[in-house]
Design a protein around this nucleic acid. Sequence first.
DNA 1: CAGTACAGAATTTTT
DNA 2: TTCTGTACTG
Length: 719
Amino acid sequence: MGLDPRRILAITFTNKAAREMRERIERLLGAASPRAASARTGFTGPGSLWISTFHSTCARLLRLHGGRVGLDPRFAIYDEADQLSLMKRLVSQQGWDETRWPPSGFLAAISRAKDELIGPEEYQARVGDFRQERTGRIYALYQQALRDCNAVDFDDLIFRTVVLLRDNGDILADLRDRFRHVLVDEYQDTNHAQYVFANLLASEHRNLCVVGDDDQSIYRWRGADIRNVLEFEEDYPDARIIRLEQNYRSTKTILKAANGIIAHNQKRKPKELWTRNPDGDPVVYYLASDGQKEAEFVTGEVLGGRRRHDLPLRSFAVLYRTHAQSRAFEDSFLRHGVPYQIIGGVRFYERKEIKDVLAYLRVVLNPADEVSLERALGVPKRNVGPKTLARLRELGQAESGPAGLLAAIRAAARGEVNSSGFGPKLLSELGRFVALIDDLAARLETMSVTEMVREVAERSGMLDALRREGTPETSSRMENIRELATVAADFARRSEDASLQAFLETAALLADIDVMRDEDDGVILMTAHNAKGLEFPYVFVVGLEQGLFPHSRSLDEPDGVEEERRLCYVAMTRAMRRLYLTHARERTLYGYSMPAEPSMFFVEIPENTLFVASPTASAVVASRHAGKDRDHGELATVRDPAPAAAGPTRPRESLGPAARASRLSPGDRVTHPEWGTGMVVGIQRVGGRGGQPGEVQLRVAFDEQGIKVIAATEVRRKH
DNA sequence: CAGTACAGAATTTTT
DNA sequence: TTCTGTACTG
């Protein structure tokens, strides 16, 4: 269209998505493509598109213009752990009981406020009850502490950028002039602050393009505001709406199953995706006896599928609701020698030893960062506890200006302050500490990040302490620190800006999913949330049990189940060729085994899309993987699934009355004279006409025979 | 102050 | 199961 690429700003949610978007654009434009710059920071140099996440974009803007809002460009970005340690200090300084006033609770409330662009003053002006009053007070203190530390949290990145642009017409005008076209991906997951940010940029030229799907909104718990989608047409009456209802990814059967589920949500814009793709395989249903068996089944299917179709392992994804579920799959894959990649869990940059090293580096860059300073001071152990720290902090008050605490340590170490009570051993420790920080700070311009990592690890005494400890974990810790040096070296090689600041920012804004390596082969394990925007030929949605998926925490929240249903829909629609839905009869959580009910979502899947892999089949898998009989290892049942039944889908009707009529509900144990015992996983009414109720049918997962659809009258409730 | 031992709690999803 | 917070000891 003859547009200048420099005038386009595209915003994604993850760096990975930004990277992919850039790659696709380059492929589409071929040789004409603008040279892409740093894929890591998401920032592209002149002559190319700016594709980046909200957070990186705002961080970049604040580095450039933060001075206007009282932010030194070397500001730190605090992650959750940093926020928590800061908040803990504040709460205890207030003398509030931490068990009754959990710091994480305050942080959650503050985060929601920031999503809505509500600052401490405004918050305090609207408080209604005692809790809010305290939250308001701590909010103000928290913001002040962040300023003192020259730090921002994730939400501040957006919030303060909005303030920056609102208060500085010249900067806003420049940006509006540069970015004539603004694109936002995954729009359904934007919060109010992000919406305002995008609108500030776009409102002049009114070239705003957003892509979103209200059915895929899965971050409302984190402040995503669905009004941004539902009211878009009101905000932009001149908007052109383009419906993207054709799906290019999945088979007809997979879509039908997913559509069937999502149709049960009340609060949505009605729509039904369709595809020209073939019907494909039925959705495979499997009920395992427990979590281990579930994992064994998945392992068997992965191995069989790979062999049959000669697929790389990264064509298979296991999607679960909570990270805790990954364990069983890891165990099983490990046992069978199946490589896997696990996304999420404890992030590399969140590991203790990594954060410890980074804390030193953060102080080097930004001496005001007291949260990091405190952390660094404590590792390795230097006999600095709360008492000493409090005394030092007191001295720091006297040292005026930013970085008071560090200045106090420096003065104490030099013996310049009357530091009675500090023993000589402590003073020399402090002296070495300050010397290390000051030395690195002096060589900031000339030293590579890799060298700094090595220097910190060695000179701080961290490595020595680990070596001395010599437990099994310490060797992996030391390994991680070495890995950090490698990561830093890679970063320096790949990024055009190899400064410490750029490195720390990348570390802070990296999402789990960003580190997924497409070039490594292995089954992908991740949460359903992390799978947003991805696709895989084979997808296993596992742990579909009441209380797990949907999660118990969602059940008492208004609209909670609808969000779980959307999450389930997102997970299912990641599948291109074949979708598996599994659950277990018994689930071990926190060390206790409990009977598990099937997920309510099973009832919602259209009848003729499911195929049952029977428990007998799982025995086949188990014996196969016991080592013998490797060759007729396919699941007979799954290899040759019955074709999806032809004919019209039964009319969808409310399932409530059917369930009531049978007095049975999903999860109930029943017995059948021929099939034995089983569990109800679905209830439906068929054949009703003109006010006549029709017959109630049950879908029952029998312990031995797999799933059957039978008349409710054929079974008896088992007590 | 740091290390140990123990009790008790808590567990969703994350830029 | 795993982590965290607390009490006690050296």
